[in-house]
Design a protein around this nucleic acid. Structure first.
Lengths: 217, 217
DNA sequence: CAGGATCCTTAGCGATACTG
DNA sequence: CAGTATCGCTAAGGATCCTG
């Protein structure tokens, strides 16, 4: 049974929270930022939400015009406008304490982090990665000083790698672990390995001074 | 008894929501964006939150480093970084349906809206307003194409007005009601009345094309 | 097996009354 | 003024069961 409480406050902030302020709602939006997802994919991405509650939230978000339900769940145009806000909230949350274990980490989370944190050399030639996480394929494209993540197979790729979100996250915070991750099988690489190092260091290495991506689209 | 649940998700977005995602938390932050507030002021601004819950939220926000508690409650430096996010959320929420009556509207809400929506003529001379809402005094300054709201008495003002948030909100959506509001006593004006019309129309009148304020500070 | 629905328990919420 | 205390209610959390 979907919830229907309201802050009963005319302010835009309160009205926004009437729509996406219920528990788990913004995490559902997060999961849909990069690609539509099916119910079971959302369940896998958010393992700590119970199935009935997830179903309730999706119904609410659909009813309120944030999410559209077709074959999979996807953001409406209005829902998509939450993207810069949710990303900014994520940047802010980086400084929050780590949550208690056991901890979840979805593919979308890591990829959003990657997009926001990567600062590839603008002078370097564009590079395309095929990235398989939890069985789903993504295309990562490095070009003109930014990283772009899209769902699905790339037309062509410099290198392909298969891993899981936690391992990828660990690599993004310490590229030096790539070798051991490859030998223990948690990362499988096909193609130009040096390109991966390039990607990881685009996230790790300190940014040039004054290079702050702002929140405006 | 403050709540302590967590999404148990390493993603920055989830960790942000662990801090400010509980019910009422972001509305407390909203109330502190323009000025520190005392407990009773917060209660007046958020009439639909119960006192025990407000006390719980304030304790949590203090414990998590968002709010500092002195004579009044105020945002920490980290908490203040939520400002562009909360404002952007408010812009997004403008398109959400109106909540069911009866509806609250705090002074801070209206003033934040005013700051975000006002586009005074950049060529016009700077104007200062003394604004008294719910017994608290604010300074509104129009200059260089922007409106700025600050707590407290202005050193000098072109005009002073006393009213309540709902009346001010009504004026901001329809400046033509100023005359009737003055005669029925819901607005009291001292000084240059035409300056008020100037302020109201800075909000109402259509913006010049391409004049979008973005979210970056 | 995906995509939920149902049931039950717990904890956060909401309202009112009360206190230092 | 600035919160506590109490209590009924409702949403959240967890497990299990159903249906195409």
């Amino acid at each position: 049974m979907p919830t229907n409480r309201s802050y009963r406050d005319s302010c835009g902030i309160a009205r926004a929270l009437d729509v996406v302020g219920e528990r788990w709602a913004l995490l559902v939006v997060r999961e849909l930022l990069l690609a539509p997802q099916r119910f079971s994919e959302l369940r896998h991405a958010l393992p700590h939400v119970s199935s009935n509650l997830l179903a309730d939230r999706l119904r609410e978000l659909e009813h309120r015009g944030v999410v559209h339900r077709g074959e999979a769940y996807e953001l409406t145009d209005w829902g998509r406008k939450l993207e810069p806000i949710v990303r900014a909230l994520g940047d802010w949350g980086i400084d929050a304490p780590q949550p208690p274990e056991p901890t979840a980490l979805s593919a979308t989370s890591v990829l959003i982090f990657l997009e926001g944190a990567a600062r590839p050399d603008p002078a370097a030639p564009p590079t395309t990665y095929r990235l398989e996480l939890d069985g789903r394929v993504w295309t990562v494209h490095l070009a003109s000083g930014r990283a772009e993540v899209r769902p699905g197979e790339p037309p062509t790729a410099d290198v392909s790698l298969r891993t899981d979100p936690k391992t990828l996250s660990a690599l993004l915070s310490d590229p030096a672990t790539l070798d051991t991750a490859r030998t223990d099988g948690s990362v499988a690489v096909v193609g130009d390995v040096s390109a991966i190092s390039h990607l990881l260091h685009a996230v790790t290495d300190p940014w040039p001074a004054g290079d702050q991506l702002n929140m405006s689209q």
